[in-house]
Design a protein around this nucleic acid. Structure first.
Lengths: 145, 145
DNA sequence: GCTTGACCTAAAGTTAACTTGAATTCGTAG
DNA sequence: CTACGAATTCAAGTTAACTTTAGGTCAAGC
């Protein structure tokens, strides 16, 4: 039984102990037992935390993330919903690629006002004309489980 | 001179008037004049808001975004920094793709515990072993302009 | 046995990004 | 000219995701 205490988990995940305690409090991860007062984490927690990091990078709330991969690592969302989320991610990826290209363009284009540069405008106009740009926080929550 | 008032901007951007006022307050966008009390926005504001949406989807703070594309639409960051941000985005895109694939995998894989599924573990292990996973908020701000 | 360092809890504080509410001001249509 | 609706300001409230602080606990090494 090689369990990790919070300092080790923090060290190798790069997440602060206070955040790890918070994650446990909200049920995102869980420690397996205590050694005295100290939480003992199973090694899989590191993989879970990686998933959490990916979810955060995608802008999901911790609540969404724990619904996607229940503390056990198994999702408690129906397949269809997971596929929807994957589709959302595809849209978001296209947006990020557009932003990346835009950034590189503005870094290199010598035009004084980008607003009139056709290349710039074309870049910005990628990623779907209407809708589907799910906000990163707030009301979006009420819209999709 | 066809200017837009806040309701029209809100309507066609999907952003609430209160948010638009907030954006103006923090200098992210700016109205050109007033008609009575009412703000008049130039049409380019819609393009700017699209940029803002892309930046938000990437997890940048509004402050970061306004540094990237000053209210004029011209960035006030040096080229090198912009390229760095583009590189960050590339890393993030790879992460989102990994998450997307993971999501599709868990939706379809019938294994009871994903933690032991090799396909699952491989998917999660994409996107760089160490570092570079810039947090979405908080201390990261102090790290990179 | 005592100290030390890593951990603990509970409660309060922080920040970004908005939203809400209350009281007020316009311009336009009738 | 008056009423209406869309906008305005300013202050206060909200939420997620943590961090900070204060005071306490414990196991391991000397």
């Amino acid at each position: 039984m090689k369990f990790l205490d919070i300092g080790e988990v923090s060290e190798s995940s790069g997440i602060r102990p206070s955040a790890l305690r918070y994650y446990e409090e909200i049920g995102l991860i869980s420690s397996i037992s205590r050694h005295g007062l100290r939480r003992q984490f199973p090694p899989e927690v590191l993989l879970q935390l990686k998933l959490v990091a990916m979810g955060k990078a995608a802008g999901f709330s911790l609540e969404d993330i724990s619904r996607m991969f229940g503390q056990n690592g198994a999702p408690n969302l129906p397949r269809a919903v997971l596929h929807e989320k994957a589709d959302d991610l595809d849209r978001q990826i296209r947006q990020l690629m557009a932003l990346r290209d835009t950034l590189r363009h503005v870094a290199d284009c010598p035009a004084p006002s980008h607003m009139e540069c056709p290349t710039f405008r074309r870049l910005v106009d990628v990623a779907g004309k209407r809708g589907s740009i799910r906000g990163r926080r707030g009301r979006a929550k009420s819209r999709h489980l």
